[in-house]
Design a protein around this nucleic acid. Structure first.
Lengths: 186, 186
DNA sequence: ACATTAGCGGAGGGGTGCCTCCGCTTCTAC
DNA sequence: GTAGAAGCGGAGGCACCCCTCCGCTAATGT
């Protein structure tokens, strides 16, 4: 992902405006995580403590707001692919996948976005695959992952999983473990 | 599940009314499968080719409509637990779980409903567990399923999975297979 | 301190969904 | 064939959300 995103949204210059911009982004992250891409924009503005007009000035369309939140998380995710570079093949893949399922807005969004078509989604998907797929094929050549599974399968499986509701974190971990174990050769 | 549901919704007597009732139920099943519990009631009435008033006469609340659809599918699901009774432990469990993920309205709904609280959801959940859990523990005593996993884990995992979007049926099957393989002992 | 202007926020018009109510239609029993 | 009742459906009031517009507020530079 290049330094400049495809979205024409820029952090404003004036101090108060910057505060509002950041508050909106934080509120949007929560709202999207909670309600998916259909979250109410008026609610987001309310949560951020700003008027609806301020939201629209910073993010003229719902897409702009969503993409900005989404891009931020994807960028972090891609970053962590470097952090795991030194680990053994399976550990690297597992760590990255666990990180993958831990992003709040992303988890709900990715699975809504996986099929939807837009320049940004496509470029984000490519980026995720660019950093994630090598981890997978590497683990496969090392015999740590069964050969009949694709990276795309895994991404979809995990994004489905994380959008489900769990009793508690322990259960979430247990289920994630089951799914990850399913990736390993018998 | 007893013959009489907890919901006070009865199929009407008059021929035309019965036609409408059934059309509404079918339309609702589609709509709930497609949009989740938030599906538009006016849209359901439109799809069924009846006025909104007719919908409300038959199903005074959204809950009544949803529960009627949901109950129907759960009843069928419980029924199939008997069909698999003769199979070996793992095969019985696997068949039932595959059936579980194949219900249209149910799949999207269950995962929305798993946490939500209502008399009907609770009784359906109990019913699913009553017929499904024995299949699981049976498979576990036979050594066909790892011991550190609960039936609840499995249900949540699968309902999460089925609410995800897949490229095609082949992928859906592949991912389901991975998840099921994760249930087996190493 | 003040002028400039970026930035603010919410009123308001349009759209959609929820649900009620009631005059009209159609079925059914006789 | 007819009367009565059961059922129909959509108009309309309310609530919420989307998005635009513009008069006001306050941050900034000098």
């Amino acid at each position: 992902m290049s330094a400049e995103s495809p979205v024409a949204v820029r952090r404003p210059q004036r101090a108060d405006a910057r505060r509002n911009f950041d508050a909106l982004l934080a509120a949007a992250r929560d709202a999207f995580a909670e309600h998916g891409t259909d979250a109410s924009l008026e609610d987001i503005a309310r949560r951020a403590g700003v008027g609806i007009g301020t939201l629209y000035r910073n993010f003229p369309t719902r897409q702009d707001l969503f993409e900005t939140v989404y891009l931020g998380e994807i960028e972090q995710l891609c970053q962590t692919a470097e952090d795991v570079a030194g680990l053994p093949p399976w550990d690297a893949l597992e760590s990255w996948l666990r990180r993958f399922v831990s992003y709040a807005a992303t988890k709900r969004a990715i699975y809504e976005a996986l099929n939807r078509d837009s320049a940004m989604f496509r470029s984000c998907r490519e980026e995720i695959y660019r950093v994630g797929e090598p981890l997978m094929t590497h683990a496969q050549s090392a015999g740590a992952v069964r050969p009949d599974v694709t990276f795309d399968d895994t991404v979809r499986m995990l994004s489905g999983l994380t959008s489900a509701g769990f009793r508690d974190d322990a259960q979430r971990d247990r289920v994630l473990q089951i799914a990850l174990d399913g990736l390993r050769p018998r």
